[in-house]
Design a protein around this nucleic acid. Structure first.
Lengths: 336, 336
DNA sequence: TTGTATGCGTTATCAT
DNA sequence: ATGATAACGCATACAA
């Protein structure tokens, strides 16, 4: 390994001079600086991030915590899009990212301890369960954090516009003439609560009376659960004319169930999803859905986290809502 | 931050003793060891991975390099599954993972330099282009590496069984009575070369003469490109009875094109995909495809990399092929 | 303009 | 059984 000591010997100057020259300190003669830089390149010198971190108390490393019920959060397209953009923005700003988990190497280490152990400068947190004490501990710690889709008091968060999204979706369906609208929602997270409240409120505002049987519970990203919920809805004496699913992937489970019953989309039943993942627009018919601004959410999360890390004085916590957009697709029939 | 110095003061012993006690050294009295450990817990002590890394020359951190043409490798389900299992296995063995990229913070840093800068103990490499000099440099460097779906000389690699997979798929289609089989392949990577060669060889072995027009080029994970290729195939005077797509996602582009032409699957045209991502089995009809053992590939990659890191003496490079399995689905009609 | 000295937190060696 | 000391590579306050 080539260190500043090697360079100092090669150049016949002290290690301090080398360090200063490489970091562009103003009190080094241009001539020396040039010579040092050239030998550094010639020798293939690379700074050692570990040593630098130990000295500076900054790792230029941010943790990413993605936890869902199953533990396999990354493979969900919505999460992986966010991860991708967090990564891209962080790297642009000179930060690497490391995954934060519990249970590192058989040790029982909670999230906070893991982040601390790795000296992360900050952490981006996405979780299905923000009541988890381990999540709360990390989020409320002295480590800078940004949470996705959930706000802690006096902390920064990036929120997708669940209320507006559901409102938009319901009004769109209403505009197409639908009055009996069913909603299959995911497991009870804070996101679900917002969407469900928005669904009910918008329906009420539109003068729709939604019978309780039209609202059913399923599981995010689980086509099977949504298939079962769909079956239950189809068994009702008075069926809805449109079903809104927890997310685009879950819709696929509903799709199978509808086909099994010989119902065509949108001829016999209209449907809508949520998320707007690329897949939804590749399907035929294209799925009506609400596209969350996942790419922007990740980008802003990284940006605000790093801002908080680098300007702790002028920093103020903020809740940033990222708007999505309606993708009308072809799965909501106009029955007006 | 609580350090061993704090513990040493609290216990009235030296820092060396604390370090030894915490690491279970044999030359510390049980009584002292117990006292040290208890105060460590009481004070909320956490070892500092950075300092430890500097001292030991080991970071317990492995790099993951996922590069595809678009740069957004993570969001492909096949990759994200591998990433997920690499992460899980690495963590089980006490390692964290960090993404390796080029262009960190505006610096032009190639992959090798990045991995070196972060002192990764090893790197898992997945890439669409193993001819990229930056990839080659890293893979052939002194840093332990494991490559996915490509072998470098004297290095460890995890290979999916592309030859066997394509062979299995073609024979399955053949068994169902198909004799005119088209193959839309992805861009020309080493993986593509293997699948294409296997396709041709298996067809030849079965006595099938595949006209060149039946073999078309598209782009992995790009439904549009496969849609266009499908259109070209449908324009042929003598259509095939079955089309094999580059991957499951690409098939969706073909699906749209078939529907646009009023062709039903598998009534009017049989189809098969590749990868066997969960989506493929949620679709109706279920897609005939070959499921790659992504989960196992990631696990073995992490395991073999860490083995190489921890036992450099007894280590030997190896090529491990992970077998997949045929998912027959319902999209290949029996026309025998 | 350059160099010396010190410390970041940890572990390993060698005395005691 | 315990402790003093040095070292990992780097950056900085201060001296020259």
């Amino acid at each position: 390994m080539v260190t500043i000591t090697d360079i100092s010997k090669a150049c016949g100057v002290s290690r301090a001079t080398v360090s200063k020259a490489l970091n562009g300190a103003p009190d080094i003669s241009p001539e020396t600086a040039r010579r040092v830089r050239e030998t550094a390149v010639a020798l293939g010198y690379l700074p050692n991030a570990t040593a630098r971190a130990l000295k500076l108390g900054r790792t230029y490393n941010i943790g990413v915590l993605f936890s869902d019920a199953t533990g396999g959060g990354i493979s969900h397209e919505y999460f992986s899009q966010i991860l991708e953009s967090v990564k891209a923005e962080a790297e642009r700003l000179g930060y690497d990212i490391t995954f934060i988990s519990r249970d590192l190497g058989g040790q029982q280490m909670d999230y906070y301890e893991h982040a601390k152990y790795r000296s992360c400068d900050g952490v981006v947190i996405a979780s299905a369960d923000f009541n988890d004490p381990a999540i709360v501990r990390l989020a409320m710690s002295e480590i800078p954090t940004v949470t996705l889709d959930y706000s802690f008091d006096s902390r920064t968060s990036i929120l997708s516009d669940n209320v507006r999204g559901m409102d938009t979706l319901v009004r769109f369906v209403y505009t197409r003439g639908h009055r009996r609208i069913a909603f299959i929602h995911g497991e009870m997270t804070s996101v679900t609560q917002k969407r469900l409240a928005s669904f009910k409120k918008t329906c009420a505002a539109l003068g729709l009376e939604i019978p309780p049987e039209y609202i059913r519970s399923a599981v995010y990203h689980d086509p099977r659960a949504s298939g079962l919920a769909t079956r239950a809805i189809l068994a009702l004496s008075e069926r809805p004319t449109c079903i809104i699913y927890p997310d685009d992937l879950s819709f696929l489970g509903g799709m199978s169930e509808l086909e099994r019953n010989g119902l065509s989309i949108p001829g016999d039943m209209s449907v809508a999803g949520y998320d707007g993942i690329p897949l939804s627009q590749v399907l035929r018919p294209r799925l009506a859905t609400y596209r969350q601004g996942a790419e922007r959410m990740g980008r802003e999360a990284a940006r605000l986290l790093i801002e908080q890390i680098e300007q702790p004085d002028t920093w103020l916590p903020q809740q940033l809502t990222v708007e999505g957009e309606l993708l009308p697709g072809d799965t909501v029939a106009d029955i007006g």
